[in-house]
Design a protein around this nucleic acid. Sequence first.
DNA 1: GTCTATAGTTGGATAGAC
DNA 2: GTCTATCCAACTATAGAC
Lengths: 219, 219
Amino acid sequence: MCHGRVNTRLPVLERRARLVDAALAVAEQDGIAAMTVRRVAEQAGVALGVVHYCFADKDELLDALASRIVDDLTGAGSAALDDAPDIATALAAAVDGLWAGIEQSAGTQLLTYEITTHALRTPGLRAVADRQYAASQAAAERLLTLVGSAAGASWRRPVADLAAEALAFVDGVTLRWLVDGDATAARARLASFANYLATQAKPSRRRSSRPHHRDGFRR
Amino acid sequence: MCHGRVNTRLPVLERRARLVDAALAVAEQDGIAAMTVRRVAEQAGVALGVVHYCFADKDELLDALASRIVDDLTGAGSAALDDAPDIATALAAAVDGLWAGIEQSAGTQLLTYEITTHALRTPGLRAVADRQYAASQAAAERLLTLVGSAAGASWRRPVADLAAEALAFVDGVTLRWLVDGDATAARARLASFANYLATQAKPSRRRSSRPHHRDGFRR
DNA sequence: GTCTATAGTTGGATAGAC
DNA sequence: GTCTATCCAACTATAGAC
């Protein structure tokens, strides 16, 4: 007979996954401080003890939650970019996609900041914060590389440096948006930074649709 | 008879100030979650009940703490800038001073992010986050205006916009520095943003403090 | 594997003595 | 104004029944 959809008697890994789902739901809604073992158990529809059976302690659950969020966020941001006539167009498209993803996940964004600060305060969770930034940095580098190739341009400075700067800016803009709720201003700020980034690229291959060429001089 | 230095029988306002001091010490050290009413009372050397006598509840104490931090941080950042030959020099000096202030107050910086996220999660503390950003925005505008006049330049775009962008960038750079501890990279990122800001200014008056005019022809 | 029951802490808040 | 004593709620974690 089929194994059915009942919640009881799940393999541990499956149970862990569902508990992380529950933890995410609670933390997204009411913040990291509200994510207690009790509420997670309640949200998952299991008894309190089950959580402690699947995770050594609360920190381990939080660690798993952080990994889950990192996977969700970096996985979502990897949509392909269409070819673009120039770097400004490609950057605008990238910013659009990026901001759309951010705007529809406000709770998760806020939660990310909460997890970062909490990890910095908790000795045993130091690796969590490192992982968050390593993943974000990698995603930013991937996106910039994609933008470059979509526009047929290359970057004048190391992509890692540009990605770090872009990441910092997006972080700051997002945090402020969470506070003031002004999405229009946030988008304008991102557009402004995209303008700056455009000055950091130079055409590296001839675009088929661009008859004229402009000479490159350094800085 | 003098009123002495004993801790007992203080006027309420003085007592409140000392409790905020204590709250700041605790929160800087161990984070906002560790800032319990009990620990604050202990740190201040008073009984638990005293805190509840001076503050209606914990949120009111936290509100006062947030105000205190905002005052400290924006007050510290208002050092005068010397006259500078050009905008790049003025910006470099401003960044130096800004970063020096940030680097020597890591605990407070982290605490600021914690307070922001906590305020966003707590309906009664919404005003706290708004106040933080209003003060930061004002300080950033003040600094940029100062930079402009020190270099005898004016900004091509509204100072408010540039300040908001600078604030976002500094926020993001600071948060990442708190995670990875790489002050050199942080400074490099700020310097890079200063370069961008320099392109947003144009000379508006002849420098007067120099008898020899090495004047600025724009290369 | 899952549940109930409970131990053991810690925290916010208040009442009432001094 | 300050302190002690106490209430009550919520939390983490574990032990042991099923």
